[in-house]
Computed example of a mutant assay.
Amino acid sequence: MNGADTAWIITATALVLLMTLPGLAMFYGGLVRARNVLSIFMQCFSIAALMSVLWLLLGYSIAFGDANPYWGGLGKFGLIGITGDDLWNTIPEILFFAFQMTFAIITPALFIGAFVERINYAFVMVFAGAWMLLVYAPVTHWIWGGGMMADGGIFGAVGTKDFAGGIVVHETAALAALLLAIMIGPRKHRTTPPHNPGMVAIGAGLLWVGWFGFNGGSQLAADGGAAMALTVTHISASAASLSWAFWERVKFGRSSLVGIVTGTIAGLASITPASGFVGPLEALVIGLVAGILCQEAVVLIREKIGIDDTLDVFAVHGVGGIFGTIMVAVFADGTFIAQFGALAIVGIYTLVLTYVLAKAIGLFFPMRVDKESETNGLDLSTHGERAYDMNS
C-alpha cells in the first residue's frame, strides 16, 4: 500500500462525487423551468443513493470480478471477504470500490438531462438501477475490468484505450439519453429558457473542479501521469469554452453564459478518454475542436432532426466522448480498429438493452407523467414541494 496514492484517490473519490452532488444537480437544475428544479435535485440525490447500494451488492462484482471476459460474476457480492488490507495495485481495494462507485453514480445521472420536465420519478429510479447493472457494469468489465476489450482481448495486444470513460461513461449514458428522449417524446414547451443561468454556471464550475478527480484519479496513483491527466483536462476545458463562445459570436453576434459553460463540459467530456495518453498541445486541439463540434451537434439534434434531448446530453457528452475516443487513435498509442470497434459494440449493446429495459419497465411504471402534472411542474405534482416561495 502506498500512502500518497491512497491519499490522492481518497481525494479524487470525493471530487467525483462532487460532480453529481451538487455539480450536475445544479447544472441541470438551472437549465429547466423553475417548477421542475427540485425534481432534478431529487433524481440526482436518489440515483446517488440507489447506485451506491446496488454497486455494493452487485455492480462492483459484475464490473471487476474475474469470472470471464464478458461478465465479472458475483464473486465479490456485497464485498464479502474484502477488508481494508486487501489491495488493488497500490491502494486498498475498498478505496478502489468507492472510487469506481462514484462513476457508477454519475453515469446514469447524466442521462436524466434528456427527459427532464416530463419523466415519471418511479420509472427513472427503476430504469436507472437496472441500466447500471445490465449496461454500465458489464461495459465497465469489458474495458476496465480486464474483460474482452482490454489488452490481449478481441482487439489483440493493444486493447481499447479509454482512460476515464469516453466509452464507459459518456457513450453509454448519451446513447441511452438519446433513445429515451425519442421514446418519451418532446416536451409541451420546448423553447422555455433556463430559469437560472447563474445556477448553471455554478454547477458547471463544480463539474470542472470535480473532473480533476474523474480524470486525474483514473491514474490510480499520485504521480506524473495523474498530474498530466489533470493538466490536459484543464487545458481542453478552457479551449472548448473559448471556441464555443467564439463560434456563438460568429453565428449570432453574441456569446452567452450558458453557451460558454456548455463548451466547458464539451471539452471535459472530449478529453476524458484521452487524458492519460495525450499532452497539453494535443489537449488544446481536442478542446478547440470539441467546442465547435459539440455546438453544431446541438443544432443538428435539436433543430434539424427535432429530437427533444432537453439538456443536450448526446450532443455534448456523446459526441464529445466519441470524438475523444477517436482522438486516442490519432494522437496516442490506440488503434483505430480497437477504438472504433469498441464504440460500435458498446453502442449497439447500449441501444438494444436500453430499449428492452425501457419497454419492460414501462409496462409497470409509465415513462411519462400526465399532461396536468407536466403543465404544473414535477416539483409540486410529484414531490409536493416548490423550489421558490414567492410570498416570503
Rank of each mutant, 00 (worst) to 15 (best):
G287A: 01
R249T: 01
K304I: 14
L343K: 01
V316W: 02
G166W: 09
L24M: 11
A222V: 00
W131I: 04
M183N: 01
F97W: 14
K371G: 12
F127I: 00
A34M: 13
V330E: 08
L220R: 07
G306Y: 13
L87D: 05
H317P: 03
G78N: 00
R33Y: 05
L230S: 11
G253R: 05
A226E: 10
G152I: 06
G84P: 01
V124E: 12
E248Q: 15
H170A: 09
P108I: 14
A25W: 11
V352N: 06
G321V: 11
H141L: 12
I260Q: 15
M1L: 15
I167V: 15
L357Q: 06
G145P: 02
V328F: 12
L134A: 08
L57F: 15
H189G: 03
R249F: 07
L54E: 08
V209G: 02
S275M: 07
V319S: 04
F41P: 03
L380D: 13
M199F: 11
G362C: 08
I182V: 13
I40E: 04
G65S: 14
R254I: 06
G347D: 05
A109N: 03
A237H: 04
T325V: 02
I305E: 03
F64D: 08
H234Q: 15
A358C: 05
